[in-house]
Amino acid sequence: MTRPNILYIVSDDLGYADLGCYGGRQAGFGAVSPNIDALAAGGLKLTEGYSNSPVCSPTRFAMATMRYQYRLRGALDEPINSRSKGSATLGLPPEMPTLPSLLKDAGYRTALIGKWHLGYPPHFGPLRSGYEEFFGIMAGGVDYFTHCSSSGDHDLYINDETHKEVGYLTDVFSNKAVAHVRERAAEARSGTPFFLSLHYTAPHWPWE
C-alpha cells in the first residue's frame, strides 16, 4: 500500500464559530471563510472536537505529543515567551516522542513551516523533535510585517538560524509551503512520503 503524504494545517486561535461552515457570521463582502466552507461541503465536518487547552503553547504540546500536556514541565508555563530563551526546562523535551518523530522513524520526510512556540534553541526546537527542516517563528506571536516578537527580537528562522525575508507572514508561509510540496513531490512519487506541518500564526495577535 502506498503511504499517503500528509499536509497538517493549523490555524492559530481560530474559534469554532469563526468559520462559515460552523455558523460564523457573514461579513459585508461575502462569506467569512469560503474556501474552508467549500472543503467542508465536499468532505467532512467535525462537530465534537475540542482543544486540549484554552491557551496556546500547552495546546501545541498536546498536538505534538498526543499526550495530556500538563504532564510536561514546559506546558505548565503559559505562555512560553521570549523571556524563556536559554531555559533548559521550558520546552518540548527532545526525548519525548512526537508525531513528526514517529513519522520520520517510519521513513517520512518531515518539515515544519510556521509557528513552533515549544521552546527555544539550543535546548529545544523543531529539529530536536522530529522535523528535518524548519522555516518559521519560535515565539508565540510576531509582527506580520517585521517578523519581530513583542520583545523586539527578530524571530524568523531557517532551522536554528535567524533569517530575514520581506513579506506578510501568512503569505510567506503559504508560498514556502507550496514550494516545499513541489520540491517533495518527485520523492513522494518514487516512494518516499512527506509530512508537512503548516502552522499559521493567523488569526492570532497581533491583528494585522
Rank of each mutant, 00 (worst) to 15 (best):
L196S: 10
F135W: 11
Y157S: 08
L198N: 09
G42D: 10
G23L: 01
A185V: 04
V10S: 13
L102I: 06
A88I: 03
E48C: 07
P126Y: 06
T170D: 03
S33E: 03
F195W: 08
E187F: 08
R109K: 12
R182C: 11
A64V: 06
G86S: 05
E187M: 07
E133W: 02
L103Y: 02
G74F: 02
Y120Q: 02
Y200V: 08
Y68S: 10
R182V: 03
V172F: 01
Y168V: 04
V181W: 01
F29S: 12
H199L: 03
A38Y: 07
M1L: 12
S174C: 08
L39V: 15
T170E: 04
R25Q: 14
L90F: 11
A186W: 00
D105C: 02
A17L: 08
A186E: 14
D155C: 02
I80P: 06
R73E: 14
T146P: 07
G74N: 02
A41I: 00
D153I: 05
R25Y: 14
I9M: 13
S149D: 15
Q69T: 14
Y22Q: 10
S174T: 14
G30R: 09
R83P: 00
S53T: 11
V32K: 11
T192L: 03
G20V: 03
V142S: 03
P93E: 00
V166Q: 15
T110A: 00
D18F: 02
F145Y: 13
P54N: 01
I80A: 04
N81F: 08
V178D: 11
T98P: 01
T47A: 11
V10E: 06
D171I: 01
P126N: 09
L196E: 09
P206S: 10
P206H: 12
T89V: 12
W116S: 04
T201W: 07
E208N: 10
L196W: 08
L14P: 07
D105H: 07
L46C: 12
F173G: 02
M66D: 12
L39D: 06
S129D: 05
V32G: 04
N35G: 05
P4F: 02
I113N: 04
M1G: 11
S150K: 09
L44G: 00
D160T: 15
G20L: 07
Y168E: 10
Y131I: 00
R3C: 00
K176D: 02
L102K: 06
W205S: 07
G43T: 11
G28R: 12
A27D: 10
H123L: 06
T146Y: 09
Y200F: 15
T65M: 00
N52L: 13
S57D: 15
K115C: 07
G15L: 09
S149A: 15
H204T: 04
L102R: 13
D105V: 01
F135P: 03
L46A: 15
F124G: 01
E132P: 06
M63F: 14
G86T: 03
L72Q: 09
L19C: 14
